[in-house]
Structure formats: structure tokens, C-alpha cells
Amino acid sequence: MSLPTPSGGSASEGRAISRGDVAHLAKLARLAVTEDELDLFAGQLDVILQSVATVGEVAADDIPPTSHAVPLTNVFREDVVRPCLTQEQALSGAPAAEDGRFRVPRILGEEQ
């Protein structure tokens, strides 16, 4: 996992994550974080990241970074159709539906 590059804020020397980083991540995660919380979370996240970073200290140069704990590659499935859910089943867990579709609140300023 790559962390965003530090982007200003009140990062102090040696910190793994700055207040600015937390604000940026909160925005990406659509979380309303107050100014006080930014200081609080930056400190807490920093402790977590520093702890995780100790794992890196035992990694030697000959050990590649691992994303998967199981030593498997090329797990594929045949291109064969399996039964789908019905429309009713698909929508049964949706908070709102209309005209056979999932209904979601309007989306602001993020046309894809």
C-alpha cells in the first residue's frame, strides 16, 4: 500500500503521517473531520503506522514485498455462464429501488 505524499499541514519531523495527509484522506473517504479531530487522528494514525513500520526493519533486501500470503498464481475459472440472481433478489437488499434499478441519492459534482 502506498501512502499519499505529504501535502503540507503541520507535519513535524519524523512523523509518518501529517495533519494535511489526514485531511486529504478524510476528504477522499467523504468523512467530515473537525479541526480538533485532525490533530487527534494524525497522532493516533502516526502511532499505528510507526508500529507497522517496525515490520519493515526485519525485511532483508532479498525478501520481495508480499501482497498475498498464499503462494499461488494463475487461479482461473472457465468462461461458463452460471445462474444470475433475479431482479427481485438483486434488489432485495437495496434501501431503495425504482423501475428495476437501485435508487441512490443524487451525486454531487462527480460525473464519471
Binding site: 434499478r101 435508487r103 441519492p105 451525486i107
Partner: peptide
């Protein structure tokens, strides 16, 4: 839905087909 010509601007809500 709502708004003009299926665009997001002015839409009241959106419907999704997956």
C-alpha cells in the same frame, strides 16, 4: 432522474443498473 436530459446537474436522484 430529475434535472435535464439525464445529466447529473439538477438531478434529484440516480438509478443504477449493474
Amino acid at each position: 432522474v430529475g434535472g435535464s436530459a439525464g445529466r447529473i446537474h439538477g438531478a434529484e436522484y440516480s438509478l443504477l443498473d449493474y
